[in-house]
């Protein structure tokens, strides 16, 4: 091969690679610039089953709740904020399903993050939220659970093991299905 062809090859191959890479990435992001982790995937996100991190959440009514005292219950840990539209969207469904499961071994905990307590209070009143909710003032719980956006929900089984994680608003049906599954011992899952 002459020098000319070598130059063609040496210049062409990396450029082709570059374009292919950019095209692939564009397909992946759907022509939409992705941002770090946020809302890239809505719905269920795979988590490693591991003991859920302990927390103590001061509640809006002045008392407090800890994960340890909820052992034996399926715990839904919901991270939300009053200003977040998807949280507002799913709030009635959450409140409703919670009431449906009253008396069974299910406990919802609302963790309000990146928010003001007075707004959180108004939010719970507006949407008739009856399960314990509190403000995670310094973001301790949110950081411990690696929350990247709101709403995010973590499902913890009766043994205190983190089982499933959902990003974005959830509808009633999915919520019921996940709860039933975990109440039944999580057979469908793993």
């Amino acid at each position: 091969m002459s020098r000319r062809w070598w130059i063609l090859l040496a210049a062409g191959a990396p450029v082709l690679g570059l374009v292919a890479l950019l095209a692939w990435a564009s397909v992946q992001s759907g022509g939409r610039p992705a941002s770090f982790g946020i809302n890239r995937q809505l719905g269920e996100v795979a988590v490693e089953a591991r003991p859920a991190e302990e927390f103590i959440l001061p509640l809006l009514d002045g008392s407090s709740i800890s994960l340890a005292e909820l052992r034996g219950n399926v715990v839904v840990l919901d991270f939300w904020a009053s200003w977040c539209p998807p949280c507002q969207e799913e709030a009635p469904a959450l409140a409703k399903v919670y009431r449906e499961y009253a008396g069974r071994e299910v406990q919802f905990v609302g963790v309000d993050i990146w928010d003001r307590p007075e707004d959180a209070q108004k939010f719970t009143e507006k949407y008739g939220v009856t399960y314990p909710s509190g403000v995670d003032d310094r973001g301790r719980i949110a950081i411990n659970y690696g929350v990247k956006g709101i709403p995010e929900k973590f499902f913890i089984d009766r043994g205190g093991v983190l089982r499933r994680k959902f990003v974005g608003p959830m509808d009633e049906t999915t919520l019921r299905r996940v709860l039933d599954d975990l109440l039944a011992g999580g057979r469908k899952f793993r």
Partner: peptide
Amino acid sequence: PICPGESIDQSQVELAKQMRQR
């Protein structure tokens, strides 16, 4: 984790402040 391309040193969002504190 929630701001495109900014470190927690730069970002002024609540999460970045909380992470700095942590």
